[in-house]
Computed example of a mutant assay.
Amino acid sequence: MVTPLLSIHILGAGRSAFLEFLRNLTPCFLFASVALFLSVRLDFNRVDLSNWAPTFAFIVCALVSAFAFFANLSAFLDSALGPNQRLERAARRLRLRGAHPRRIAAALLVLKLRMQPGVVVQVLVAFLVVNAALYGGVFASAGAVVAALKNGLR
């Protein structure tokens, strides 16, 4: 007998992907903290070429953080929703027929719901996990920067 809790993919077969997602958040928020710390000294209201090094470091850290988060997010969501050859074949057929991307997405959503009606719960759980991780990391990064600035680190 399968309990409803274990039927959620990230608590069953997708458990390792879920834990990897959480583990990979650390570098994302480390770079976000450094970018936030560097942004305190920057003046975004005017262009100042004499301050190019901190500005460049800020931009690099912010971009690395954003790209790392979205790469980690896409890997997690691929695993959370589970691979499916039937969906891939349907998408390929629709693309070959010249269907609009929105129409392809809608058709795949309907097909996925027909194949696995419980996927709505999995998507909701994945959405909640991602948002909790994102907001928790942002608040932790902001807290670390505020603490560093209060302690005189500049």
Rank of each mutant, 00 (worst) to 15 (best):
C61D: 02
N45Y: 10
A144E: 05
A132G: 13
E20Q: 15
K150R: 14
A75T: 12
P27D: 03
K112M: 07
F56E: 09
F44V: 04
L11E: 00
V129C: 07
V34A: 08
L111G: 00
V47E: 09
L25S: 06
S79K: 07
R41Y: 14
A105Y: 04
G118L: 10
E20K: 15
A66K: 13
F18K: 02
F67R: 10
M1C: 04
V120G: 08
V40Q: 15
S50A: 10
L111W: 01
S39H: 05
L25W: 03
S33L: 07
V119F: 04
A80S: 07
R103L: 14
L153T: 03
F37N: 02
L22G: 07
L63A: 15
G98I: 05
H9R: 15
V130D: 01
F56Y: 08
F18A: 08
R102N: 14
L87E: 09
S39F: 03
G82F: 02
V47I: 15
H9D: 01
L25R: 05
A17K: 06
S16K: 14
E20I: 14
L38D: 06
A91E: 09
N24A: 07
F67Y: 10
L153E: 02
L63Y: 11
A99L: 08
C61T: 06
G118E: 12
L109V: 08
P83I: 03
A71L: 11
N72W: 01
A142L: 13
A66L: 14
G143C: 07
C61Q: 01
F69K: 03
N151F: 11
L42T: 03
N24C: 07
R15T: 05
L36A: 11
A132I: 08
L30H: 06
S33F: 03
N24D: 11
H100W: 11
R23H: 11
F76I: 03
G14M: 05
L5N: 04
P4D: 04
V110L: 10
V110C: 03
N131S: 09
V2A: 12
H9P: 00
V119N: 09
A106K: 14
L30M: 12
S50E: 09
I59Y: 07
L134R: 11
R102D: 14
L11F: 15
A62V: 02
A53N: 04
S7A: 08
D43W: 06
C61V: 00
A147Q: 08
L108Y: 00
R95K: 12
R92G: 05
